[in-house]
């Protein structure tokens, strides 16, 4: 098993935390993982991106050229990375903010999830990253939802542990909505 994902959004959407949490969960499951945050000029313009590669064996390249899955939280990220998704790959889209019509690709599977609405309904827009991660886990099968939930205590600083139950709910809801879309 080798899964790679590129998660992209704007600063403040919790993209890097999502990447970290996913990595902690993969480690918890005994897998190898490589998490690589945006670097150099890619960091400019208020965007936040990271890639995560999860594998049973060697991870290989931490640099992902054509991700098999792209998770986009804002329009700019879709425009920037949409063309890079591997043919046959998946694009999980925050449909609250992103219009996928412009993408013009019929060789990838697009899964719209209204992440902002879901997060807001659950009580805090800042959980948009957890909704996205839940959706990714459900679609990719890269890690178990329960492991993600369990890894929250590793990925979050202790002062934020009180938000864990809410985050677990956001992960589960994201997973559920994404599963319904793919069913």
């Amino acid at each position: 098993m080798r899964k790679d994902v590129l998660i992209a959004g704007f600063g403040g959407q919790g993209v890097l935390l999502a990447g970290n949490l996913l990595s902690y969960a993969a480690i918890e499951e005994g897998k190898n993982v490589s998490y690589f945050p945006a670097y150099g000029v890619e960091k400019r313009g208020g965007s936040a991106t990271c890639t995560v590669v999860i594998a049973d064996g060697a991870v290989g390249s931490p640099v992902v050229g054509q991700p098999s899955t792209l998770v986009v939280l804002n329009q700019a990220s879709l425009e920037r990375f949409g063309a890079r998704v591997r043919p046959g790959g998946v694009c999980i889209v925050n449909s609250s903010l992103v219009d996928v019509c412009a993408l013009g690709r019929d060789d990838i599977r697009i899964i719209p999830v209204p992440m902002n609405e879901i997060a807001t309904e659950l009580g805090d827009l800042r959980m948009v990253n957890m909704v996205a991660l839940g959706a990714y886990a459900a679609v990719s099968g890269a890690v178990e939802l329960a492991t993600l939930a369990g890894a929250l205590k590793e990925a979050l600083p202790e002062r934020n542990h009180k938000y864990i139950p809410a985050n677990v709910k956001a992960i589960e809801t994201g997973a559920q909505v994404a599963s319904e879309k793919t069913a």
Partner: peptide, 10 residues
């Protein structure tokens, strides 16, 4: 370099 310096792994 910044790849091996900044990336996180087990």
């Amino acid at each position: 370099d910044s790849v091996v310096g900044q990336m996180k792994e087990a």
